[in-house]
Design a protein around this nucleic acid. Structure first.
Lengths: 215, 215
DNA sequence: GGTGCCATCAGGGTTTTCCACTATGGCGCG
DNA sequence: CGCGCCATAGTGGAAAACCCTGATGGCACC
């Protein structure tokens, strides 16, 4: 039983390379080079395995992983990255990936890794697995939750972050306005910006977003 | 470079079997069938790898692992167990083991596993690795230690808890109504009850409340 | 067979949030 | 100096959330 594969990478060149490596071995049911398109297409096509590039603009592969995993946990993710940084690996695993290999992997090994992830196995290069175990054993959730997340937080202006923190604490717009001695309308402006930038639709999601990366 | 191995198992028969399997491949620098003796001897002889039986009287292999790991983290542990229960695996990993294999493993695979752990790699049978990843991703330390009964949660009726969970996920009243096939008004009723019982004043605080005890 | 709790829903009201549009003063940068 | 970004703030409207009152049927318990 060969698993169906979906490819997410923002570099056409790399996708072409992977396509070539998998040719004749696995069935590629779709590709995407954009985060939002990827989420939509993956949910629509329900591949067995998603081969996911970690470093992508606009939220990165992490967002694809999180959103798809939330609604379709049966779809297995194999992260494919140039990075072997512990923070990246940890973040990906936390989000629900079942494997993580670097782009230095050989073609046959990649095919094998995809097959195994598709079969429900877990695939990690040994050193990366060590990162995960270390993080798990020391079990300090805050330690690794900061680094990767900053990409999204960085989009926000200082004032927006300030408002976000108060939102996360359950303050109403009125309270925030009083606290920062600005008008409610200004608070609304900031909140709107934050919602737009993080691509969320209401303050409740915002609260969740914030509490996930404990602010 | 063949790693030196220390054997901890309370069954002489099993130790003999392992000895036979490893003969000529690896160097066994000691054995113990008792928790306290094991701790002492391991610290004295500093093997590269400790092959550890999980289920042992008087604290079990877990105590050996914890105590040795605390003072000599360089000594790698490979857990060897008849159990493939998630709780056991999680506990062992948390304590710092670098691998976990069941006793159904073949001799050659065991030798290979020990070598790899000795070299700093991580060795898990795929399904067991899955347990660890799941526990890590859901990152719910309480789930595997002790489930504390929540006095406040107990006040809520089943339906109220159901609504609360959806609230915590950022659902709107309309969404919840659709999801549970009831009217918005009923959702309001439940939310009001929950707010009153938990002495909160709005759903934002509710979201926080829920995320604190991760629901 | 009443009493209480639960789940369901309605009417009708206030407050809060969200959104689109607009606008202004400040500030840095080329 | 103009351009862009940021923080500020307004109008006005739609939607959502919140609150109170009251009502019904079901079900368990004494």
């Amino acid at each position: 039983m060969t698993p169906t594969v979906f490819l997410v990478d923002d570099h056409e060149l790399i996708r072409a390379g992977i396509r070539a490596e998998l040719a004749g071995e696995l069935t590629i049911v779709g590709e995407a080079d954009d985060v939002d398109v990827a989420i939509e297409m993956i949910l629509e096509r329900s591949p067995d395995v998603v081969l996911l590039d970690v470093h992508m603009p606009r939220g990165g592969g992490l967002r694809v992983l999180r959103e798809v995993h939330a609604s379709s946990p049966a779809i297995h993710f194999l992260a494919l990255s140039v990075s072997d940084a512990a923070e990246d690996v940890i973040a990906i695993v936390r989000a629900g990936a079942r494997g993580y290999v670097t782009k230095s992997i050989s073609g046959v090994d990649l095919v094998d890794a995809i097959r195994r992830v598709g079969a429900g196995d877990v695939v990690f290069s040994p050193r990366l697995a060590g990162f995960v175990l270390d993080a798990f054993a020391s079990s300090d959730p805050a330690a690794y939750s900061e680094s990767v997340v900053d990409a999204e937080l960085d989009q926000l202006t200082p004032r927006e972050r300030q408002v976000l923190r108060l939102i996360a604490r359950g303050y109403s717009y009125r309270d925030i306005a009083t606290e920062l001695t600005i008008s409610i309308k200004t608070v609304e402006s900031h909140v709107s910006s934050v919602l737009r930038k993080l691509q969320l639709s209401n303050r409740h999601q915002l609260t969740n977003w914030a509490s996930e990366r404990n602010l």
